[in-house]
Design a protein around this nucleic acid. Structure first.
Lengths: 139, 139
DNA sequence: ACAATTACCTACCATTTTGATAGGTAGATT
DNA sequence: AATCTACCTATCAAAATGGTAGGTAATTGT
């Protein structure tokens, strides 16, 4: 389909919203969230490590364990969540990390891609996670 | 990789730039452009119908034939070119044409996707093809 | 101590998309 | 008539996507 944001990012966002609804105090088991959000537990298990690695959530094993936000919801941008979940968030392969295009210095379109990337990043970094919460979830 | 714009869109843009360099008068054979741009002729052949369908270029068969811009370069936006080449240009599957999400009315993220889509479209629609031409190509 | 609960890890897999190739057909020009 | 050109159909390898399965290790309540 050619999408910037896949289920990885979308599901991660829903998990973060779910976690925000629970507050920071206690841990929420992934199984609960999988059922609540109607997403495969096993698939979610493959996404969570990305959020852990980026320090967005903390986890605790064993009974009473689960996941929890590591900061208040207002202090997250959805940009950083999507970036963590997806690995990268680029509109065009030319901008891939580590990729050096042989046509780069004569390429007339590269500046446009960079600008586009900037615009997308700016917007997503400006939307706080808390903006996605309903009143009940915020309380 | 998770990209909004694939080679289809990027190659289409390079073809349009190449065509703009030739002016509107005569037709340019695809074979020439494939060699000049170092892109597989056969692959380009699969992209051109999209540009034809959207009325961005006109074609002529037979000797002396090829492709030509159907308007002056200033009157194209790169947004419409990319959209024609890619088929659609959406940042997230939720916005796919004809897709109706069951969670749509309670979804907290959908407004963000729509806004993002708007931002991307606005930018790309505002960049004219002529902005990608060098001085020589513009003459 | 032990059983239950939980995250975490590795491997696998079906489907779709991407990027491309191959060969042939039909129309236009010299 | 010969040639050049777009156009059409089929095929294909590799990668990404979205998901499944089974097991291991850490923690906790009882």
């Amino acid at each position: 389909m050619g999408c910037l944001i896949s289920t990885k990012g979308r599901y991660a966002l829903r998990i973060m919203i779910d976690l925000a609804g629970n507050g920071q105090g206690s841990y929420v088991p992934l199984k609960e969230m999988a059922e609540r959000q109607d997403i495969s537990l096993k698939y979610l298990e493959s996404i969570m490590p990305n959020l852990i690695k980026s320090g967005l959530v903390s986890a605790s094993q064993g009974r009473g364990g689960g996941y929890a936000l590591s900061r208040p919801a207002e202090e997250y941008s959805i940009g950083e969540i999507l970036k963590a979940a997806e690995g990268d968030l680029i509109p065009v392969a030319c901008l891939a990390d580590g990729y050096v295009c042989p046509r780069a210095d004569s390429c007339r379109t590269l500046p446009v891609w960079k600008k586009l990337d900037g615009i997308i990043g700016d917007y997503l970094d400006r939307v706080p996670l808390s903006e996605l919460l309903t009143e009940e979830e915020t309380i």
